[in-house]
Computed example of a mutant assay.
Amino acid sequence: MEFIFSLDEIENIAQQVVAENPNKVILFHGEMGAGKTTFIKQLCKTLGVSEATSSPTFSLVNEYQTIDNQIVYHFDFYRLKNETEALDMGADDYLYSGNWCFIEWAENIPNLIPESHSVISIKVLADGKRSLELS
Rank of each mutant, 00 (worst) to 15 (best):
R79M: 01
D93A: 12
I109G: 01
E104Y: 07
V25F: 10
V25A: 07
S118V: 02
D127S: 03
M1N: 02
K123S: 09
K41M: 10
G35L: 12
D68L: 06
H117R: 12
R130A: 06
K41E: 13
G48E: 11
A91D: 12
E133K: 15
D8A: 04
Q42E: 15
F5E: 04
G128S: 09
A34Y: 04
L60H: 01
I122H: 00
E115I: 10
S135A: 07
G48F: 14
K123V: 03
L60P: 02
R79T: 02
F28Y: 13
Y64D: 04
K123N: 12
P114S: 05
S131G: 05
E83I: 06
D8M: 07
E83N: 06
C101I: 00
I4Q: 11
D88C: 04
D127R: 10
A91G: 07
A52M: 11
K129F: 05
E133A: 06
S50M: 14
T53N: 03
K45C: 00
F75T: 01
E63R: 13
V18R: 07
H74Y: 06
G90P: 04
I113D: 01
K36I: 01
S116E: 12
L47S: 12
L125E: 14
S135P: 01
E133T: 15
R130Y: 03
I67Q: 11
M1V: 06
V124P: 02
N69W: 08
I40N: 06
